[in-house]
């Protein structure tokens, strides 16, 4: 399994392989879009999509092509795909707690269900590697995380786990490390931009 990406990389260079498509996955509100925007903005000065405290702001996968990740002397060209948060439940009443009207909340719930299905579809067909983003203030053992990491492992995709929001006082990134000892975990704040260099180094190493 370790040798496989290298071999593919070798043939890839030989035949002009397409760039690696890296999907940013995780539960709703983990900070996926904030992170995607930071990575893309660091590189190109543009943004991928809007961020919101209301869950399911991202209801369609958004792709940014040809993002160059620089770490030390290595350069890696990847496509970044920001995906809708994955969950097993969507209750429109939750959106109304943020002051949304019922009609609007129901429409958002319908779009969100399609978004989750779309995220799963991308994972099945079009993703070469995954950045799995978790909010360090939340319980990492939520079933949806165990399930998604299980699916990613079953598809043998390279993965980096991001312990996000370490700027918050009740962040406990250590819990994430003990939940997923089999994968590299990078502690960051996507919002504040803390520790991005370590993440870029890991991206260059894992998705090469």
């Amino acid at each position: 399994m370790v040798a496989f990406p290298r071999i593919r990389n070798f043939f890839g260079k030989l035949f002009g392989k397409k760039r690696s498509r890296v999907g940013i996955y995780g539960p709703p509100n983990a900070g996926k879009t904030t992170l995607a925007n930071r990575i893309v903005r660091d590189v190109t000065g543009e943004a991928v999509g809007p961020v919101s405290e209301i869950p399911h702001e991202t209801r369609r996968a958004r792709r940014k092509e040809g993002v160059e990740i620089n770490s030390g002397s290595t350069k890696l060209l990847i496509d970044i795909v920001d995906t809708p948060g994955v969950t097993t439940k969507i209750d429109y009443h939750e959106f109304m707690e943020y002051g949304m009207e019922q009609d609007e909340a129901i429409a958002r719930a319908r779009e969100a269900t399609e978004g989750v299905a779309e995220a799963m579809h991308w994972l099945r067909e079009d993703i070469d590697g995954v950045i799995y983003v978790l909010d360090s203030t939340q319980d990492p053992f939520m079933h949806v995380n165990i399930m998604m990491v299980g699916i990613i492992e079953a598809r043998k995709l390279p993965v980096i786990i991001v312990a996000n929001k370490i700027d918050l006082p009740d962040a406990a990134p250590q819990r994430i490390k003990s939940a997923f000892p089999q994968h590299p975990v990078v502690e960051i704040s996507g919002l504040e931009g803390h520790n991005m260099d370590e993440l870029y180094a890991k991206i260059s190493e894992v998705f090469r």
Binding site: V86, A117, H121, L123, M147, I151, E153, A154
Partner: peptide
């Protein structure tokens, strides 16, 4: 894992 993904979808 595959079945869980299908169940989710």
């Amino acid at each position: 894992p595959e079945e869980q993904g299908k169940l989710l979808e």
